[in-house]
């Protein structure tokens, strides 16, 4: 089982993963599930009316706007990093938080490395399945490396220009 790290109230913690991440051809299981966008669109009504917690996995090429109307029904959205160099998921998470107002879990899947903890947290990710064996402690250290930030982002950190005005 890959480790799940969650960021709750500013703390990184190893967490139990309640969700089953289902491939498109995998049989549906009981309990909370994560599905691809395609599968979710095909099966959403049956799933959601069953009262189940549902998450959607978004490939880097998929537009988060396609989920806009479903977001209130979703417990989790999981943008995927096909390679850590592929930064599209940063935009996906930013739009989820800042534009679409999603308040559920935003989970980083794929090539998720601690070196990007800082960027992911700032874009609004709050759960992580690291691909490099890193621990919650590693993530806490990496994400907290910088005492200041220059931009307003999807997290609640005060940018330099706000600090300066105080």
């Amino acid at each position: 089982m890959p480790t799940l790290i969650r960021l709750i109230d500013g703390r990184f913690e190893a967490a139990e993963d309640r969700f089953t991440d289902l491939a498109d051809d995998a049989e549906l299981v009981a309990g909370p599930v994560i599905l691809s966008l395609t599968r979710f669109q095909a099966e959403s009504d049956a799933l959601v009316t069953a009262g189940r917690q549902v998450g959607v996995r978004l490939a880097a090429s998929e537009a988060v706007e396609d989920l806009a109307y479903d977001l209130p029904r979703l417990a989790l959205v999981a943008p995927v990093f096909p390679k850590f160099r592929d930064g599209r998921a940063f935009t996906t998470a930013t739009l989820l938080r800042q534009r679409l107002g999603f308040t559920g879990e935003v989970r980083a899947l794929g090539d998720v490395l601690r070196e990007q903890a800082f960027f992911m947290v700032r874009c609004g990710f709050d759960s992580f399945v690291p691909a490099d064996g890193s621990t919650a402690e590693d993530w806490s250290r990496a994400a907290g490396r910088f005492r200041h930030v220059y931009q307003r982002a999807a997290d609640d950190r005060a940018p330099a220009f706000v600090e300066r005005a105080q």
């Binding site: 930064g87 940063f90 990007q116 960027f119 874009c123 220059y150 931009q151 982002a153 999807a154």
Partner: peptide, 11 residues
């Protein structure tokens, strides 16, 4: 300042 470690545009 805006571009330094920009959360969204560093990759």
């Amino acid at each position: 300042q805006w571009s330094t470690l920009h959360p969204e545009f560093s990759f």
